[in-house]
Simulated assay, not measured.
Amino acid sequence: MSTNDHRAGVREINLVNRTLKLNTERVKKVREAINEIDRLVGLDSVAFDSDQSLLSVAYDASKVNLTMIEEKLGKFGVEINSGWWTHLKEEYYKFIDQNIKDNAEHTPWSCHRSPPRTKIKRK
């Protein structure tokens, strides 16, 4: 397997890696949440370091965003750390995710592009 192989639905150009600190004492709940997150279309990988309470996810930001992952965590009662550094990173991640999604949906435009061809033949 090469380094460019990803799950189905994941484009490498939109791939982002996120690491978040979680507030949890119950590792079982985190594992259940990870199983739920792992089913998202566009997710490349998800891992949890129980020693440092760090959640690492890699996903296609044009299909998945941090808010979706937070909702899945919240469903199982797992919260993201409320420290100022984690909050700052979280807001930055959301901004970048939205920017990637907007750029993926945008149709490029240029005033230097040739006009569309018509089917009328010139004499």
Rank of each mutant, 00 (worst) to 15 (best):
D44H: 01
S45I: 06
S45W: 07
V46R: 08
V46C: 13
V46H: 13
V46I: 15
A47E: 13
F48I: 13
D49M: 02
D49Q: 04
Q52N: 04
Q52Y: 09
S53H: 15
S53R: 12
S53D: 14
S53P: 07
S56I: 09
V57K: 01
A58M: 00
A58D: 00
Y59P: 00
D60L: 13
A61I: 14
S62M: 09
K63W: 14
K63Y: 15
N65L: 06
L66D: 02
L66E: 05
T67Q: 11
M68I: 05
M68E: 10
E70S: 01
E70H: 04
E71R: 11
E71I: 11
K72L: 03
K72D: 01
K72Y: 01
L73Y: 14
G74A: 11
G74D: 08
K75C: 02
F76D: 10
F76H: 08
V78C: 08
V78P: 11
E79T: 07
N81S: 12
N81K: 08
S82Y: 05
G83L: 02
W85R: 10
W85V: 11
T86A: 06
T86L: 08
H87M: 03
H87C: 03
H87R: 03
L88R: 15
E90T: 04
E90R: 06
E90A: 07
E91C: 07
Y92Q: 03
Y93W: 12
Y93M: 06
K94Q: 12
K94S: 13
F95N: 04
I96L: 09
D97S: 00
Q98F: 11
Q98Y: 07
N99H: 05
I100A: 05
D102Q: 10
N103K: 14
N103C: 09
A104I: 01
H106L: 02
W109T: 11
S110W: 11
C111D: 09
C111Y: 03
R113G: 13
R113Y: 14
R113D: 14
S114Y: 04
S114I: 00
S114G: 03
P115T: 11
P115E: 08
P115F: 14
P116Y: 12
